[in-house]
């Protein structure tokens, strides 16, 4: 049995490396995209073998599924742009009923809808019964809960989720913040400067509501941030609330908002990651390990990181929505 598994693992490994190599080496972009999707599915299998089914699901859905679809759509756009450049006229995909274009067209225009009730009913029943079974067979294991509970007194905070996120597994949270920052850098590096066009809201309703909602959103955001130390809450939720308020402001009256100056905006956006890194390095120097805190300092340091992270997340969400670099800083 175990010999079979070893052989399976070896074949899987060889497959992953081989597919990755073929994907990178392929000169045909469509083939590369298909190989990338295959790579994602094999990787999901590898996660299953590592007994991490959650990550396998995420890899299959995000890595293979959504990213694959995005790449296919990008490829089709790229092709029509290239064809336009070559021929000087808008490109129409060839009426080829089979082959790769059929899949691409299927992605763009769903087939004509047939109003049948039964597929939807069967689907709902299957998904519903799956969910009920999942609820029924809740695993009895308590997981890592006892471990977390046993160490709550050294975590510096009173809420187990915050303790895990910002103390026990601070490394994960640090990387999450870094990914949010990298997403924004990616959006900025596309080099767009055009902001959302000004669309003056018709009538007084929207500005009036904003005048009511934005202060409430700010108070709620700060409350959720503060509550994070002893109740559900924290930097990501608070940042999302503040970011939503900012996006509403940008949407409703873009003309009256002053453009954010470049340097302070960049400082604010990087504050979360930078401060987290500084604290982590200090912990390394002081002998607590990277991202470790002295017990007495845990609470103030966590609050400090959470405040900076909230600011960064809120600013990043708004900046991602606006999607353009601040005007006039091409330096």
């Amino acid at each position: 049995m175990s010999l079979l598994l070893v052989i399976f693992d070896l074949v899987l490994l060889a497959g992953i490396i081989g597919v990755a190599w073929r994907c990178l080496a392929s000169t045909d972009l469509f083939r590369a995209v298909v190989l990338f999707i295959t790579f994602g599915l094999l990787l999901a299998l590898a996660w299953v073998r590592l007994e991490a089914p959650d990550i396998a699901l995420a890899e299959a859905a995000i890595g293979a599924g959504i990213t694959g679809a995005l790449l296919l759509v990008t490829l089709e756009r790229l092709r029509s742009i290239m064809a336009e450049r070559h021929s000087g006229r808008p490109h129409t995909p060839p009426p080829d009923p089979s082959g790769p274009h059929a899949l691409l067209r299927a992605l763009h225009d769903p087939p004509p809808e047939r109003h049948s009730f039964f597929p939807a009913l069967i689907f709902a029943l299957v998904v519903g019964s799956l969910l009920v079974t999942a609820l029924w067979h809740q695993p009895q294991s308590t997981g890592l809960e006892p471990v977390v509970d046993a160490h709550m007194d050294v975590s510096g905070v009173d809420h187990p989720i915050t303790a895990v996120l910002l103390n026990f597994r601070a490394y994960d949270t640090f990387l999450e913040l870094a990914i949010v920052l990298i997403a924004l850098l990616g959006a900025w590096s596309l080099g767009r400067h055009d902001l959302i066009p000004a669309r003056p809201a018709p009538g007084p309703i929207l500005p009036g509501t904003l005048r009511l909602l934005v202060p409430v959103a700010i108070v709620t955001g700060v409350y959720v941030l503060w509550a994070g130390s002893h109740a559900p809450g924290g930097a990501f939720q608070a940042g999302a609330i503040l970011g939503a308020a900012g996006i509403l402001l940008v949407l409703a009256r873009p003309r009256q908002l002053p453009m954010a100056p470049g340097i302070p905006l960049r400082l604010g956006i990087t504050a979360g990651v930078a401060l987290f890194l500084l604290v982590g390095l200090y912990g390394l120097g002081a002998g607590h390990g990277f991202l470790g805190y002295a017990d007495a300092w845990a609470y103030p340091l966590i609050i400090l990181i959470e405040v900076a992270a909230t600011l960064s997340i809120a600013l990043t969400l708004v900046a991602l929505f606006v999607a353009g670099r601040p005007a006039g800083d091409d330096a």
Binding site: A201, G203, I205, L206, T209, L212, L213
Partner: peptide, 10 residues
């Protein structure tokens, strides 16, 4: 209520 009303209005 406030948000839904505004969205419906818009």
């Amino acid at each position: 209520l406030a948000a839904g009303t505004t969205a419906a209005h818009m």
